[in-house]
Design a protein around this nucleic acid. Structure first.
Lengths: 235, 235
DNA sequence: CAGTGGTCTAGACCACCCC
DNA sequence: GGGTGGTCTAGACCACTGC
């Protein structure tokens, strides 16, 4: 009863991390070492580590080891700040990588949401974003090129909101947001270097122009420990 | 490589559930039965079930078994609809249970957020809420009784927003919201009949009156598979 | 009391990372 | 090639649920 060795181990690392004996980003001892030290099998050690992972205290890189999670960044979608800006403001270093960019024909889901005919060309953009060199999210966007002619020739690793303002005199306003805590799909875990099926946060966002046309649809998959959502509702 | 038995098993149940061979709420065979059927050990079976759990496809009741998750309810905090109303609108049956109600002295966190002196009495309310008889969330609220005299004598299993409107001619307006995908604390898992440390959704909400005073602070812990957050931002 | 999931042992082999 | 985590076997005992 006072057993539950994995709880004990969990509490052990919890306090080491809380007291900064183990600093953010540092590597934990290997599963086998921990097991030896505490006279536990790897199964039990892994159960403790997985509990800590669900708490957001540690994370793993596939086959590289376990690491202490940095603090989560605060993301306020309603603030209309770019990723670069809000990450920088919180004292971290953002970085964006373009994985793919192609013109695709809108499928029925995208076409319906954008109020376009199925098959209309839209710009598909796939990006990976980092905080302090740790990949924290991937996003897949469908951009309504009809409203933004020539956007595909720009540097699309930059902030889209800044690009919109500079080149098109547009800005984000209304949006529909949806959040779901669920496991990440394979495409996301492999792009983020996470073990398959880890839990994460799925955000879906539809951005509208001032006159209610759909500018862009965004699907984001975040590591769950990397972000806290914060929104101020002001009617 | 084409091994990964637990992935195979996961896909097996995934398709059974998708095709409604296993209906929402129904019980899966026991871990030992599944293992026998697929010639796998319980460890592997459990790994598959835990993956399905993270996906939100199944859930477990402590030592009772594994069950197919019902569809998630959509929760729009900005719509100012009561739990009872939005759950009913989506075709489910809500139910609320009061676990505790006491007048407490505001601690420093609550006092600061409510802009009251530490030690001011506030109403603490602890409730458990159900959808179709399944406990899906617990909430702990601190209510600013200074603004709502006599509220402690009301039936507090009912909708607070309706109570506010009827008795005090007030309604929810501005609010600060915070969401975090994390594991549930012990108090939440035990109250929800979940295994310790399961992942969930943590919502923190501060409700303001029309004139910017803090009406109530709410801490909600949801089963992660029970809810999708949806918010429309309209500037 | 029988059956369930929760915890744990003591191994094994493999895929992949880094040196 | 040595070390890491990822997957898996074949058992065991315990705590709790439901009859």
């Amino acid at each position: 009863m006072s057993l539950k060795h994995y709880r004990h181990l969990q509490e052990h690392f919890h306090s080491l991390i809380r007291n900064k004996v183990l600093e953010a980003g540092s590597k934990l001892p290997s599963e086998r070492e921990i097991g030896e030290q505490f006279k536990l099998t790897r199964v039990t050690v892994r159960q403790a580590l997985q509990s800590l992972e669900m708490e957001g205290m540690v994370y793993r890189q596939n086959r590289r080891g376990w690491f202490v999670s940095p603090p989560a960044v605060v993301y306020d979608p309603a603030a209309h700040l770019s990723f670069n800006i809000f990450v920088t403001e919180q004292g971290y270093t953002p970085h964006t990588e373009k994985l793919q960019q192609t013109l695709v024909a809108a499928d029925s889901e995208v076409a319906t949401k954008m109020n376009l005919a199925v098959g209309t060309p839209v710009l598909f953009l796939h990006r990976r974003r980092y905080i302090d060199n740790r990949p924290v999210l991937i996003e897949k966007m469908y951009i309504n090129t009809t409203l933004l002619p020539g956007i595909e020739e720009e540097d699309l690793t930059q902030s889209l909101s800044q690009l919109l303002a500079r080149k098109y005199q547009m800005s984000y306003r209304d949006m529909d947001l949806s959040f779901k805590a669920t496991s990440l799909p394979e495409e996301a875990t492999s792009a983020l270097g996470i073990t398959a099926g880890q839990s994460g946060l799925n955000i879906e966002r539809i951005n509208y122009t001032q006159d209610k046309q759909v500018l862009e649809i965004d699907y984001e998959y975040w590591r769950h420990d990397a972000v806290t959502i914060q929104i101020a509702i002001r009617d």
